[in-house]
Design a protein around this nucleic acid. Structure first.
Lengths: 140, 140
DNA sequence: GTTATTTTTGCAACTCCGTTGCAATCATGC
DNA sequence: GCATGATTGCAACGGAGTTGCAAAAATAAC
């Protein structure tokens, strides 16, 4: 578990620190987007929120994780899965499902982001498809 | 201009106040999503930010405007156009374009939100398709 | 293994935005 | 024009993003 995290950190030329390993472990175990506040709770306040903020920032800059937008108000990040490195270039065109009840955001790998063409003049750089609703776990 | 705003407020059974009229005017003139901070600037600090916050909230609850999510971090709202009231029910499935340079978010009416089916267990309630990039005005 | 160097961390501090309570002000119906 | 209820502005608080700086830790060099 932790081994995979350490491996990943080395691959991305990042120093092995407790915080980074724990955050990465958490992301590896829970395959979903997490926010800095959630990490703070989940990691039992073992790290300062600024450290977690910077850890996520570093991972994001290095391309280990990517931003996930939803309507929860706080920025979330998710691990880049295999899909991110597929074929020729790095891309993040996933469909994300945000549960308005448990506030969790997951990547829907089963569904491809539909392609669409914009009116002339717009230069698209990133596509986000967010679906809000109730997730599988929250249906009683 | 202001006449249309007053008309709309009456339609939605809202009291005619300076703030509401000005905000609505601004939304009518600039057909795009705006945030509370932007309104504060644009309306020359004539209203308290809390008032603007509550004005947007009220409009949203009454269905005059709807939330627009992008990665700017602050919540934005846009007028509900004719498309919102089309055919049988109220819906907000627009494609939104967020310019990362000028930070403006516009509704792309020309393009329909593609329909897609989710894995079983997910109950979708709202679809957001956000495209980040450079808008028409920002291309030099 | 010890030391030097560079990075990372924790703390303090600040800003911005969302949100609520409350008293004063305003819009509307009579 | 007055009464009533809604709306506003102010004060205030919390959460999240962000930066600077000194202490601590991780790697590199010996």
């Amino acid at each position: 578990m932790s081994a995979r995290a350490q491996e990943l950190l080395k691959d991305y030329q990042l120093r092995l620190t407790d915080c980074r390993i724990d955050v990465l472990d958490f992301l590896l175990v829970n395959q979903r987007a997490v926010s800095q506040p959630e990490l703070e709770q989940q990691l039992s306040d073992r790290f300062d929120r600024v450290t977690l903020y910077r850890t996520l920032n570093t991972f994001n800059e290095k391309g280990l994780i990517h931003e996930v937008t939803d309507t929860s108000g706080t920025m979330k990040f998710a691990l880049c899965g295999e899909a991110c490195h597929g074929s020729d270039h790095h891309h993040h065109e996933h469909v994300h499902f945000h549960c308005t009840q448990c506030n969790q955001t997951v990547c829907i790998n089963e569904v491809d982001v539909p392609h669409l063409s914009l009116p002339t003049g717009f230069k698209p750089q990133k596509f986000s498809f967010i679906i809000e609703g109730i997730c599988q776990s929250c249906q009683q």
